[in-house]
Amino acid sequence: MSVVIVIPARFASTRYPGKPLVELRGADGEARTLIRRSWEAAMVVRGAARVIVATDDSRIADHAAGFGAEVAMTSSACRNGTERCAEVLVGLPETPEMIVNLQGDAPLTPAWFVEDLVAGLRAAPEAQVATPVLNCSGAMRADLLADRAAGRVGGTTAVFGVDGRALYFSKEVIPFVPHEVAPDAASPVFHHVGVYAYRPATLAAYAGWPEGRLERLEGLEQLRFLENGGSVLCVEVQAQGREFWELNNPEDVPRIEEMMQRMGMA
């Protein structure tokens, strides 16, 4: 059963223009671009038949091809990464079992996050889409709250039912917690990891739906599934000692570089 990983990347980000080509310096002192580090993270995922960088920008395409990535040029009319993945799906010679969207702003995503996500969707035939969630420690929750207090739109949080089905995703830190949480303790908050596994028919349907009201307000593409009655499975993944953060704002660059230093990531 084939799994194709697509890394959507656009230059014209509202919050951080040119983000895919921003350089991150690893523990070995070498600087490599965000899109390259995201591609390298995807290339070590077991079971992936292909890894494709999907973009509408020639600068990103030329850079990605230069380090050996397979590149698909997609329309500038794509409003988000899921629509870009849907366009890639149309151009594939054979329909895969699933498409995995590994967004190009998460170079710290461990391979097992994606592998566990694929396994989770395979084990839940009723689910149309799956996405990973990571239980926040008190320290991670505090970092998310600090971003919001500073007026930055940072990480996304998820709430889900006892069956793992997503109830909502938000740029706010939800659920509300009426007490302090110790830095090294688990909190009731789950950080949404920006990866999705789609069944092809559901991904194709997404491209035909209009942008949702909540999707537009929150700036979260996955809400379009919920607004159209779709079932999104939240798959809890384990950090296994790894630190995780996504590059959403320029202020995240030194934070991620510090994490890479601590973890000894080249």
Rank of each mutant, 00 (worst) to 15 (best):
32 R>M: 02
92 L>T: 01
120 G>F: 02
13 S>R: 13
122 R>N: 05
62 D>R: 01
148 R>M: 12
56 D>K: 14
40 E>H: 13
67 F>L: 01
188 P>W: 06
41 A>L: 02
27 A>Q: 05
253 V>T: 10
155 G>K: 09
229 G>F: 12
209 W>A: 08
8 P>A: 05
105 D>T: 09
192 H>Q: 11
5 I>R: 13
17 P>C: 10
116 D>K: 14
228 N>P: 05
148 R>Y: 12
146 A>Q: 15
1 M>I: 13
228 N>F: 10
3 V>H: 10
30 E>Q: 14
46 R>A: 14
91 G>D: 01
96 P>D: 06
221 E>N: 07
250 P>A: 07
165 R>P: 01
48 A>L: 07
201 A>P: 09
263 M>F: 07
221 E>L: 05
253 V>A: 09
196 Y>S: 15
230 G>H: 11
41 A>T: 00
82 T>K: 04
52 I>S: 00
19 K>F: 05
39 W>E: 01
60 I>P: 07
64 A>T: 00
143 D>C: 15
176 F>V: 10
166 A>H: 07
58 S>D: 11
22 V>H: 02
215 E>I: 10
45 V>S: 09
53 V>K: 03
222 Q>Y: 01
111 A>H: 04
242 R>M: 12
50 R>I: 04
104 G>R: 08
18 G>N: 06
65 A>L: 01
32 R>D: 00
148 R>Q: 12
111 A>R: 06
243 E>H: 15
127 A>Q: 07
148 R>V: 14
255 R>L: 11
144 L>M: 15
220 L>G: 07
84 R>D: 00
41 A>M: 02
50 R>D: 01
227 E>H: 07
227 E>D: 07
60 I>L: 04
177 V>C: 02
129 V>S: 11
201 A>K: 11
2 S>P: 14
172 E>Q: 15
214 L>S: 13
57 D>W: 11
17 P>R: 09
118 V>K: 10
75 S>V: 02
111 A>M: 04
199 R>L: 10
236 E>I: 09
35 I>F: 10
93 P>L: 03
127 A>I: 08
212 G>Y: 04
119 A>L: 13
49 A>I: 05
158 A>S: 05
230 G>T: 14
89 L>N: 00
259 M>W: 02
215 E>C: 11
265 M>S: 03
55 T>C: 13
56 D>Q: 14
85 C>I: 09
201 A>Q: 09
90 V>Q: 00
242 R>D: 11
37 R>V: 04
133 V>D: 02
262 R>Q: 10
82 T>R: 03
127 A>E: 08
179 H>T: 06
64 A>D: 00
12 A>F: 07
99 I>P: 08
108 L>N: 01
53 V>F: 04
175 P>Y: 06
29 G>K: 03
116 D>F: 14
179 H>R: 03
251 E>F: 13
70 E>F: 08
101 N>F: 15
